[in-house]
Structures are given as structure tokens and as C-alpha cells.
Design a binder for these strands. Structure first.
Length: 551
RNA sequence: GCGCCCGUAGCUCAAUGGAUAGAGCGCUGGCCUCCGAAGCCAGACAUUCCGGUUCAAGUCCGAACGGGCGCACCA
């Protein structure tokens, strides 16, 4: 939050300075946190950017701006320095740091959160796996990223809803029902070959077994219905165990099957609309969407010549529905194998009268699974896959969620199942959780003393380790903004590991409980703040915060 | 062939166009009469190649090479 305080004031100063020099006041300068070899708190690059249009040495400009900052911001800035090619390095007054620390202690789990931010109403759609089999490890990555991103955006004050789009109609459902029926018949002694294009997984057998145990007449069983019901409840359980929940489960049949008074579905209507608006045309008996008009590679079929709609038709109606529900920003998490859909979905958004930026797609690369150093194939068709449940059961929810948040969505993720199973210090989540355990241990110890007080003098926290730690705590908000800006929550884990690093260094260098009651009391406040931020961060990551670790 | 993503340390990955490119694992060597050693300290090791833009490029642009994915009136 300190950064926001500084940058808000700087904005006025810089823009005035640019104006007085006849420059475009909207030159995009930035306020950065310098690399760790520089001891300044913030660095400003405005002088370097102004150097060229002003035809002036950047260091001279830096000096001019620096003088103004010192004069105008003396309540916040302690000193400045011109460095490198023309950076203005800013040193914040210690008092500001202590004030911020106090704020953490008071606001606790609300620290750095924004109560209301009416700019956007956001819908985050993720997972949305078809109910034809259990979630696999790739879905887990999407679930972890989507859920944490939604949590961060909510924390920052956006009105956020999390939604799962359920493809509960269409051909795949028929195949699923058929697969279950054949397994059922085989169980009853029927000699029927199982088609290779049907679902091969063991879970189909399990469903069939359950049905067989009910002793019903085969004609009374709706195999499709039963299979979907069974699989869906499994998916919901797996997500629940993974700490992921949804605000809305949106069913495809609501737009593709349900009819209004005139006997039309939403899919019927949007295709008609597109045709009326000349965004769709008939060719070879099929209805085509003119997506090339908005940058797609080729036009796409909405309705086949046999009259059946494609998935794109449902998707178009679905996204129209999202906008109609009042969402101003749609965020879709998509596995990289679906990247081809981005162009056509954005085309639909634009045809519906929205900007292509109203729909953001976060593409996450697929998870390649390693088993004993060998890559393992994944396919729900062949039945050879690792389920999310299996990994969560073995490695634990915390390790899995932290692991999935460790890398940027754009990076391919190599998930070593053997490594994930290990409950050991090789897993970085323990490094962060250990901070909380150590803090708790000190708190327990402190209860034995009567000389510690609540009303403390935070200015006693003046060593390098303490200052570094406080600064790290204060950059929590900057990290959250970065997640917002990049639509990626992986900065959370990186931040938490840095914070843990600062804490462990502090811990090694400075004893909290000493003979000096004033100092001990102040340091206890510091570790209380550390615990607050660790908890806030881990909670956003969907990871629990144990009070103690077990060996 | 066309399109999208990626190429950074031995391995897996970070790095809002900024200063001396960071972690974890692995490796070498140190640190527990003291709040938890699941920790700390020290050491070795990296931007695939070639051009360009920029005051400044791992980051942007172009080309080459390598890896993943996608290119259906499938879902």
C-alpha cells in the first residue's frame, strides 16, 4: 500500500513537471521496486523517458524532479538519489513503514483488500470439464489457477462470480450412456464387444456395477442420466477436496434444450440473430459464422447440414447469456489444447456488440505427467490417466495447489507424481508453512512472560533484517495488483517464498524474546504481522495454514 | 504447410522494457548450551543462435533451430 501512496503523489508532481516542460503529461513512466542490490525503496524512471524529447541529460532532469519530490513529499520521502542511467531512487521515511505495519496489525485479514470497486463485474469460468469422466491432473491446474485468480480479484474489490459450464447434452453424453449400457450388459453375461471409440475407463465399469446391483429391468434404466449423475457427483467431491467451489453451475441444456414460448432455444435465437445481422450465412446446407470478419483464420460452422448445432453455437449463446447477466468482464480459463477457440469466441463477443477485450482468455499449458522419470500419456478415451483425486489423496491438497501455482500459466508444467507424493522439505509449501509454525512457537513461549506489553514502540524495529521484513510485508498489495494486471495468481507463491526467506533470515539473526521487554514486545508485533500476511497469502492460494508442522 | 504457446543454472521454473538475471531440487563446505535445523550462512553453475528497435532487451520486432499444442459439417 505504500507504493500506492507514493505513486499517487508522484503522479501529480510528474505530470506538472512534464506540463511545465511542454511534454505530453501521459508519458508512461513507472515506479519500481529496485533489485535487491540497491537499497532504495522505490525507483522512478521518468527522467530517462523525458531525456530524449527534452534533448537533455537524464541525470540533470532527474535532479530537477528529485528536488521537487523532496520539497513536495517531505512527509513521505526521507531522501533521494540519482543512480544508474538516470533513475531517481526514493527512500521512504521509517515512520511510513511503521504506520503501514500498524495498519496490517489492525486490519488483519482485510489488509490491502479493497472493500468495493464498482469498476467491473467479473465472471471467471474454469474447469468446465465434460461430465464424461473424473477430473484429471490437467483440470486440477485449471482449477487451482482459476480459483485463486477469482479469490485475488474478489480481494481487490471486484464483484466476482465463479462458474462451471456443464456440457450436459450432445453426442458425448450419448456415447457415455451407451458405454455404460454395454458394460452393464457385459456384467449381466452379454457377449458384446466394447467399441474402441467409447469410454474405456474403469469408472464406467464401476457405474455399471452399481446399476447392476439395483436389480432393475434394463429398460427402466436411463444409462446416460445415471452415468452423468454419478460422474458429476464425483467431480464435485474432487473439487471440494481440492478447496475449489463454484458460485454457479451453468447447464448447457438451459440454452440448447430449454425452449421459450415460441418454441425456440437460445441457440436457435442467436443463430437467427447472427443471420439477421449478416454475421452468418448459409453454404452447402450449413450455417456458417463469419468469424474471419473479426480476425479468425476461417469461418466456422454453427449448424450442420443435418440440422444439428455445433458446440460453437452453444458457446455463442452461452457467452451472450453471460453478458446479459450483467458481467462486464469475462475471464475464461482454457487448457492450451483449446487455444484455437479464442479467436472465434472473441469474434462472437464482438458480434454481440462488446469489445474483444471484454473477454479475456487465460490459457494454461498442459501438465505433462512424469512417472519414475518417464512421461505418462493422458487420455480419457483410453482410460490411461492420473486423476486429480489420486494426486490430491497422495500428495495432499496443500502441496498440489501450491505446486500448480508455482509457475506462470504459460509455462508447461512437469508434474512428477513421485515427487509430489513425498511429504518432505523438497516441497516448497513447507518452507512457507514453516514460517507460521515458527511464529506460533514464539507466541506460545511468550505467554509464559508477564513483562510483555501491548502498547509497543515499533521504532525499535530498526535492524536491517527487521526493515527488510517490514518492507516485504508492505509489498503485499503490489503483488496482488500484479496478479490482477497479468491475470495470473502465480505471483502469490513467489511472493510467499520471498517473504518466508526474509522471515527465516530475521529469525536466525534476531531473537524475539530477550531480556529487553520493550524490544521483545515490538518484535512480537512484527511476527504477528508476518502471520497475518502469510495467512492472507496462503488463503488466496487455497493452501491451509497449520499452526505446527510435524516431523 | 498454417496458427498459438514455450526455449533462462545439471533438473524444474521466476524475473510489470530497467541497475550486478533470482528461487527450489541436486552438488561442495560450515552453523543447534539459545524462541522448532522442514531453518541459516558460504561456494560452483544460465538467458538456444543471428540480425533489428530502444537511453536500456531474457522480455519487443524479423529470421533460423528445438519442444508442446491446435488446424472437422468431432466433442
Amino acid at each position: 500500500m505504500i507504493k500506492k501512496l507514493v505513486s499517487d503523489k508522484l503522479q501529480i508532481i510528474i505530470s506538472d513537471y512534464f506540463k511545465s516542460k511542454g511534454l505530453d503529461e501521459k508519458i508512461k513512466y513507472s515506479l519500481e521496486i529496485p533489485p535487491k542490490n540497491i537499497d532504495a525503496d522505490f525507483a522512478l524512471n521518468a527522467a530517462m523517458l523525458a531525456a530524449k524529447p527534452l534533448k537533455k541529460n537524464p541525470k540533470i532532469i532527474a535532479q530537477e524532479i528529485s528536488d521537487i519530490i523532496l520539497k513536495e513529499m517531505s512527509d513521505i520521502i526521507d531522501k533521494t538519489a540519482i543512480a544508474g542511467a538516470g533513475f531517481i531512487n526514493l527512500y521512504v521515511k521509517d515512520l511510513i513503514l511503521f504506520k503501514e505495519l500498524q495498519k496490517i496489525l489492525i486490519q488483519k485479514d482485510k489488509y490491502a483488500s479493497v472493500s468495493q470497486n464498482n469498476k467491473e463485474k467479473i465472471l471467471v469460468e474454469f474447469v468446465s470439464a465434460n461430465p464424461t469422466g473424473p477430473l484429471h491432473i490437467g483440470h486440477g491446474r485449471g482449477a487451482a489457477i482459476g480459483d485463486s485468480l477469482a479469490r485475488v480479484l474478489k480481494y481487490l474489490g471486484y464483484a466476482v462470480s465463479k462458474e462451471y459450464y456443464l456440457n450436459d447434452c450432445g453426442n458425448q453424453m450419448l456415447v457415455l450412456g451407451q458405454s455404460t449400457k454395454i458394460r452393464y450388459q457385459q456384467l449381466k453375461g452379454g457377449k458384446i464387444d466394447f467399441p474402441s471409440d467409447h469410454y474405456q475407463g474403469d469408472y464406467i465399469n464401476d457405474i455399471a456395477k452399481n446399476l447392476a446391483a439395483q436389480n432393475k429391468n434394463i429398460d427402466e434404466i436411463d444409462f446416460k442420466e445415471e452415468a452423468v449423475k454419478d460422474i458429476l457427483s464425483g467431480i464435485k467431491n474432487d473439487l471440494n477436496d481440492f478447496g475449489v467451489d463454484f458460485d454457479i453451475w451453468f447447464s448447457e441444456s438451459d440454452i440448447a434444450v430449454k425452449k421459450d414460448n415460441s418454441g425456440k432455444t437460445e441457440v436457435d435465437k442467436i443463430c437467427q440473430d447472427f443471420e439477421n445481422m449478416k454475421f452468418a450465412y448459409m453454404q452447402d446446407g450449413a450455417l456458417w459464422l463469419k468469424s474471419t470478419q473479426f480476425g479468425d483464420d476461417k469461418d466456422r460452422v454453427l449448424r450442420r447440414s443435418d440440422g444439428r448445432y455445433t458446440y460453437l453455437a452453444s458457446d455463442a449463446a452461452y457467452h451472450k447469456n453471460k453478458f446479459e447477466r450483467g458481467f462486464t468482464k469475462l475471464i475464461n480459463l482454457l487448457g492450451a489444447d483449446h487455444h484455437g477457440y479464442i479467436a472465434r469466441l472473441k469474434a462472437c463477443a464482438q458480434m454481440l456488440g462488446h469489445s474483444k477485450d471484454d473477454l479475456d482468455v487465460v490459457l494454461y499449458q498442459l501438465v505433462s505427467l512424469m512417472r519414475d522419470g518417464q512421461p505418462a500419456a493422458m487420455s480419457t478415451r483410453t482410460g490411461e490417466f492420473i486423476t486429480l483425486k489420486e494426486v490430491v489423496d497422495e500428495a495432499g491438497k496443500d502441496a498440489c495447489r501450491f505446486f500448480f501455482l508455482l509457475r506462470a500459466p504459460d509455462s508447461q508444467l512437469e508434474f512428477d507424481i513421485e515427487l509430489a507424493k513425498k511429504q518432505s522439505n523438497e516441497n516448497p509449501v513447507f518452507y512457507v508453512q514453516y514460517v507460521n509454525a515458527r511464529c506460533n512457537s514464539i507466541l506460545r513461549e511468550s505467554k509464559k512472560r508477564a513483562d510483555l506489553k501491548e502498547d509497543v514502540d515499533l521504532t525499535l524495529l530498526n535492524t536491517k533484517e527487521e526493515r527488510d521484513l517490514i518492507k516485504r510485508l508492505c509489498s503485499f498489495y503490489s503483488m496482488l495488483s500484479l496478479c490482477d494486471k497479468t491475470l495470473s495468481p502465480h505471483h502469490i507463491t513467489a511472493y510467499l517464498m520471498e517473504l518466508a526467506d526474509s522471515y527465516h533470515r530475521f529469525y536466525e539473526a534476531r531473537r524475539v524474546l530477550t531480556d529487553d521487554a520493550d524490544l521483545s514486545s515490538a518484535r512480537l508485533k512484527l511476527i504477528s504481522a508476518v502471520m497475518i500476511i502469510i495467512k492472507n497469502g496462503l488463503t488466496l492460494a487455497g493452501v491451509s495454514v497449520p499452526d505446527q508442522m510435524y516431523k
